[in-house]
């Protein structure tokens, strides 16, 4: 099976990576404007969608752990933003 990078079919994969992943600067070290989710809120909502596997009980623990991690990151960001 060959991987694809054809732009039309993989734009959501690209958005996932560039908007939600990638290196974030450690804000203790330097002032940065990153992490302010001003862009395309609707777009993200459309992309995120439902976690269909949850109703089947798969990956519940993992999902909860991810949520907890994201909450923590958000809180850290909020704290940085308030400085």
């Amino acid at each position: 099976m060959e991987p694809t990078r054809e732009l039309h079919g993989t734009i959501s994969d690209l958005l996932d990576r560039v908007l939600d992943k990638g290196l974030i600067i450690n804000a203790d070290v330097i002032i940065t404007l990153s992490g302010i989710p001003l862009i395309a809120v609707n777009l993200r909502a459309a992309i995120a969608g439902m976690e269909t596997m949850l109703e089947y009980g798969v990956m519940t623990d993992w999902d909860e752990a991810t949520r907890a991690r994201e909450r923590r990151i958000r809180e850290e960001r909020a704290a940085v933003g308030a400085q």
């Binding site: 560039v18 990638g22 070290v29 404007l33």
Partner: peptide, 22 residues
């Protein structure tokens, strides 16, 4: 690769470029 919209700005008396270096 950095996340989208990662911008380092100038601060009091320090240029953006110097902040990148720091």
């Amino acid at each position: 690769p950095m996340r989208f919209d990662t911008i380092i700005r100038d601060t009091d008396g320090v240029s953006a470029e110097d902040n990148v270096r720091r």
